[in-house]
Design a protein around this nucleic acid. Structure first.
Lengths: 190, 190
DNA sequence: AAAGTCTATTGATCTACATCAATGACTTAA
DNA sequence: TTAAGTCATTGATGTAGATCAATAGACTTT
């Protein structure tokens, strides 16, 4: 049950058996149906989510159009950072693209956990650092590459996403319309 | 000398005198001339920078045009996250917009520091968490607001930046051209 | 199988903003 | 004081991608 989680975490910062014994019970196992809303814009996000299987997305609305900020597949850990860390109303929605199994941990439990040992504190730090580096890179893509270049980069770096997510969501993730993505694909194929 | 730094850090996570005594000597005091290049694209960024006085910017080139990602004034701490945390070549340059005084700390020293106590580890974690929340919010602005809205938001939230930074840098930070910013300003004034 | 619902594609048009070019205001150097 | 840079402004034009609209294939429901 906890294997994937332990492997993922140990890759980031190795923990003692005692720390594991303390930490694992703080996770709560949950299942989400396909399409189920997990966090609504305006609510405060209290939990970090570790995806065991399935796919979640975080998105908001520009006008009445969904804008997908990120997609999380199995073995990824995330939260709505602005809301989770700063306890502010979320700017985003989170829902399940597929039926999903996950572990979640409440912020309060996470704080207790990360205060227990230097190793655990380091784990928490590394998660934030890695997420930070990832977001900065994505930010750079969105501002310095055009739609075609972003599409090609995604194709190259996350090809597995395409087998699982409809094209209009890919377009949204890339920051363009489905029509624009369709044209880009046509141009590349032709 | 260390007052501003201590105040800023204590606001994030309070430290014991022993931790302070251990940590402060790990900072190195530096001064940068106006216009001085601090990090060149392609190099690995080894230091976190705490700005005591002055102003630094982090930017890269789209073609031959500078694109400013962020501007850091006094009492802010930052690094090139992707490069610093993942030890990859930097995508960005860092230089001094004004003559600047700063403390810098090498990543290796920071790791030693953050491994010394849970309080210090928590400080390191909070820095990354706060930076993460900030970057996600900025990302959201850049993708969901137009130039005018981004300008008004900056005006409202960081008015002090305008007294110190030329307009073409503001434009670059906002992700638009100086011409576009000039037109936005004209439209708002009129 | 028929009917309704999604999704992807294609075409026509529109728009925010970029690019290119010229000008005037300010600053700095001789 | 003049000359040479900078910087902000304004005008003319170009363009990536949005928006609107229509069509067709694939899936689902009955």
């Amino acid at each position: 049950m906890y294997d994937a989680l332990k492997q993922t975490f140990n890759r980031i910062a190795p923990l003692s058996d005692a720390d594991w014994a303390f930490g694992l019970p703080l996770f709560k196992y949950v299942e989400y149906k396909k399409g189920e809303l997990i966090l609504r814009e305006g609510e405060v996000h209290h939990h970090s989510i570790f995806v065991i299987a399935g796919a979640l997305r975080i998105y908001n609305f520009n006008g009445n159009k969904e804008s997908i900020r990120n997609i999380f597949l199995e073995n990824s850990m995330f939260n709505e950072s602005g809301s989770y860390y700063l306890k502010k109303p979320s700017l985003f929605n989170i829902d399940a693209i597929e039926a999903t199994k996950a572990f979640i941990m409440h912020r309060n439990d996470a704080e207790v956990l990360f205060s227990r040992s230097v190793q655990l504190a380091t784990l928490g730090r590394r998660f934030a650092e890695y997420a930070l580096a990832t977001v900065v890179e994505r930010n750079n893509e969105l501002t310095s590459m055009d739609g075609k270049a972003r599409y090609l980069k995604l194709l190259k770096e996350k090809p597995h996403v395409f087998q699982r997510v409809p094209q209009y969501m890919i377009a949204s993730y890339l920051g363009i319309t489905p029509e624009a993505l369709s044209r880009i694909r046509k141009e590349i194929a032709g």
